[in-house]
Design a binder for these strands. Structure first.
Lengths: 344, 344
DNA sequence: GTGAAAGCGCTAACAT
DNA sequence: ATGTTAGCGCTTTCAC
């Protein structure tokens, strides 16, 4: 069933039918009703490609995922984000175009998307400081929204971000309120913007009390179970082990938990773990080790907001940068957690 | 830069340029060279929508993900699969269209994709026995490949599946070779095809030795950390606890590990855990609890094979059902694992 | 308020 | 081996 068939069927021109369907004001209300009813009855769906060719808009949003560094896609956080964004696209009858490309081809892919007008806009994932993709997209004139920020104070583009700095500041403060002083930070690679911000927040919490963390308890690396395990293991085996951990991802937290298990007899119940990134869904507060989920990640929400922001930009044509900073909740498990031995 | 511009520039007709670019045989080699060079130099990219409108092919593959039951997308396995498929699409210059829809709208979505000719084919995720989507897609005439199988012996459609039955048969056999007899099965919901097959394999391993598992040690439920924890916890608290676990997913395995941790002092080093679904990447063999990854999941490979199979079907037009059964590797951790107390 | 006709950028008969 | 022409299914002037 195409437009022509429908118009013939109704004894109207394609033009009128098209106008009726697309809610043009000049159409007679009676006609519109008749047309819409017929379209529904005959299950008419406009061909998006034809429409797109005529209008110049693709009604699709691109997500480009580099695949050689596997972190992005394997990360459950990514899936949640995509799910959130996808819902918004569905509701607004947009398509989501996912491109998995070797990261060396990422720039080419953006150029391609722009040249072929395959998408009306893109979401940028995993920004690094001074990310080259931003200027590329600007020069290509392709609307975009960044999930995260490419560097501090940069206001030249739209982004949606979780308040990473504050999350870790609050996590550290929470632990210090419980009496912990030897708090470890198991962070992601610090050239990633989010990791840098988390570290800043962590340090801030200490400064606020005139304290400073033990540098030996601060590490950054690949967000893998293995790195979490090894880091925590080394720290716990030291002469002055930490009494609490702040961890940058669920996967690393699993490793930290394993290390704590190894050291279990030594530690007793004296170790707290604070995790970022939706850990609550996967690692509920255990009976053996008190785990506090400090920041309930809002990745799913972030996905929705990113998508909505981009659609708004595309619709309005207004590219004035919009910035959304999400506060993540401090969610505490059932147990309020122990104070370290000899704490005040 | 569009075809017309390029043809004007070259002093050729659009037709010739189009033919040269699309490797039609009747074009003069010299001309083709000239055309291709010019296209490259001027960075010409054919508009896929125009092309699609003219050819009737969309050069896109659809993946429909129901979102009200969150399992599908949250599952890291899903992300790996998508990554695998995405690579294949990229290499074959196809787009991947991801639709996140409330599961009640799933059928509507397929009808939509078919009616609007948005995609040349779809991949079906998470099949259940006698899945209604299969007959729907067949009646819509939309090419598809199923990741998994909708029921036993069904050969009327193409699928790519991991040999779930054998994976669990081998896992159980592996543990029995180590001397274990009280082996638990923590399975996914048994109305899912894969879970049923895993159970079958588990049971087979016992029958082969003239044994049968304790029904109290076989459970099935949502693949969550919580379910894994609770199931294992209950079993370990019983009078005759298991000495080994086979677990159907990484997430559940985390819960099982937590339960083992709880029961640690009682158990000593006597518990083995065998996990399906790429557990190796996330849960390396621990120092405290011996964990054996029995089946290295091939989801990523499955994604590639599904995508390739679908592209082949679309290209050749040959819809003769193709079936691919992947054998998953039995990967054993560093430790070969302890025999249970008093084992032979 | 409705219609005729041109055109979006490409491919595919049908010439030559 | 190359060009001419007519679409693909829709929107959008422009005219009535």
């Amino acid at each position: 069933m195409k437009l022509k068939d429908l118009s013939l069927l109704l004894g109207l021109s394609q033009t009128t039918v098209s106008r009726a369907l697309n809610d043009y004001p000049e159409v007679n209300e009676a006609t519109r009703k008749r047309v819409k009813a017929a379209a529904l009855a005959h299950n008419y769906r406009p061909n998006p490609r034809a429409k797109s060719l005529a209008t110049g808009r693709s009604m699709a949003i691109g997500h480009v995922i580099p695949i050689s560094t596997k972190h992005e896609i394997v990360n459950p956080v990514f899936a949640d984000f995509i799910a959130g964004a996808g819902e918004v696209y569905s509701r607004n009858s947009h398509d989501m175009l996912l491109s998995m490309v070797p990261d060396v081809e990422e720039e080419l892919t953006y150029r391609d998307l722009a040249a072929k007008a395959s998408v009306d806009g893109v979401i940028v994932h995993g920004p690094k400081p001074n990310d080259s993709r931003i200027s590329l997209l600007q020069s290509l004139g392709l609307p975009f929204v960044v999930h995260g920020r490419a560097s501090d104070g940069d206001t030249g583009y739209s982004w949606v971000d979780v308040n990473n700095r504050r999350s870790f500041e609050r996590a550290a403060n929470f632990l210090m309120d419980l009496g912990h002083r030897r708090i470890a930070l198991i962070n992601g690679l610090e050239f990633m913007d989010f990791a840098q911000r988390r570290k800043d927040g962590f340090l801030d919490a200490f400064s606020q009390r005139g304290l400073s963390p033990d540098p030996a308890l601060m590490v950054a690396g690949e967000m893998t179970e293995e790195f979490g395990y090894r880091s925590a293991h080394r720290m716990l085996a030291g002469t002055n082990p930490p009494t609490a951990f702040t961890v940058s991802s669920m996967i690393m937290a699993i490793g930290v938990r394993r290390a704590i298990g190894d050291a279990g007899k030594k530690m007793g119940r004296d170790v707290s773990v604070v995790i970022h990134d939706d850990a609550l869904s996967y690692l509920p507060n255990g009976a053996d080790i008190p785990i506090f989920t400090a920041t309930k990640s809002s990745v799913h929400l972030a996905g929705q907001l990113c998508a909505q922001a981009l659609l708004d930009i595309i619709q309005s044509g207004d590219t004035t940068p919009q910035h959304t900073l999400l506060e993540s909740e401090l969610t505490v498990g059932e147990s309020t957690g122990p104070a370290p031995k000899g704490a005040s």
